[in-house]
């Protein structure tokens, strides 16, 4: 991405804190996170358990709200939106990929991919076309009528990715997308994400434990103790990343 130097970042977190519970059991998950993410970036989020990376991802995914601080998405304040407004935001701009695939069981790949379009209110024909297009992009168009149980883990994650991109979102949030896959399948998934990032311009935010997977990212954000420890801007994707 060039020429974005002066433009606002796609996502901006300012002094974001998140507190769970109250009184003696209170736990501060985020202690003032500042983070800018440019449109079209491929960001890997790393850090040990409890470092605040999942909480941050939940906030970035509009699934959760910060206790304090600012969250701007495309220049709009998200921290002030209510539950349903955030849902509509997710529907329109965000796509999710989970570690456990989270496909609907006993439901064909096609119907799984169609799901977000159903909520968008597309008619049957438009749904089918878009869903088949997304399946084609992840190389599973021939498997459209198979249920998750009939697909391998790698294939299931591809279906999940197809479901995430079928609405042409701005941002794809992936929570350890390769956590349940062997290394060969993992590389395939990462190549798919890289391709979507490059050719479709989708901003990818990915949580991962594995440096090998983070190596596909252009920016690596390290979390520690509820704060951003450091941000690693990488000139060449594929370069090794420290844990």
């Amino acid at each position: 991405m060039t020429g974005t130097l002066m433009a606002d970042p796609l996502i901006r977190l300012r002094d974001v804190t998140k507190v769970y519970g109250s009184g003696a059991t209170q736990f501060q998950a985020l202690k003032g996170v500042d983070l800018d993410i440019k449109a079209g970036d491929f960001v890997a989020v790393m850090g040990p358990s409890g470092s605040g990376k999942s909480t941050t991802m939940n906030i970035l995914g509009c699934l959760d709200v910060p206790s304090a601080g600012e969250f701007l998405f495309r220049g709009h304040h998200i921290e002030r939106l209510d539950r349903d407004q955030r849902a509509l935001l997710r529907r329109r701009y965000l796509g999710f990929v989970f570690q456990g695939f989270n496909l609907l069981s006993r439901t064909s790949a096609l119907e799984n991919v169609e799901l977000p379009l159903l909520y968008r209110g597309d008619d049957k024909r438009a749904r089918r076309e878009a869903a088949m297009g997304a399946l084609e992009k992840v190389g599973l168009d021939r498997w459209w009528d198979h249920t998750p149980a009939e697909l391998s883990g790698g294939q299931q994650q591809r279906v999940a990715i197809a479901r995430a991109i079928v609405t042409s979102p701005d941002v794809l949030l992936a929570d350890e997308p390769t956590g349940n896959l062997d290394s060969e399948r993992s590389v395939e998934i990462m190549e798919l994400l890289t391709d979507l990032n490059r050719t479709n311009g989708i901003t990818v935010l990915m949580v991962t434990h594995e440096p090998d997977m983070a190596a596909f990212a252009r920016t690596v954000v390290h979390f520690k103790d509820g704060l951003v420890e450091r941000i690693e801007a990488r000139h060449r994707q594929g370069q090794a990343v420290e844990a």
Binding site: G61, L63, R83, D84, A87, L88, L89, R90, R91, R92, L94, G95, F96, N102, L103, L104, L115, P116, Y119, R120, R163
Partner: peptide, 15 residues
């Protein structure tokens, strides 16, 4: 979990 998936991909509570 299914409800979680639906909410995550943008279903509002009413839906």
């Amino acid at each position: 979990r299914e409800i979680g998936i639906r909410l995550a991909i943008g279903a509002v509570a009413r839906e």
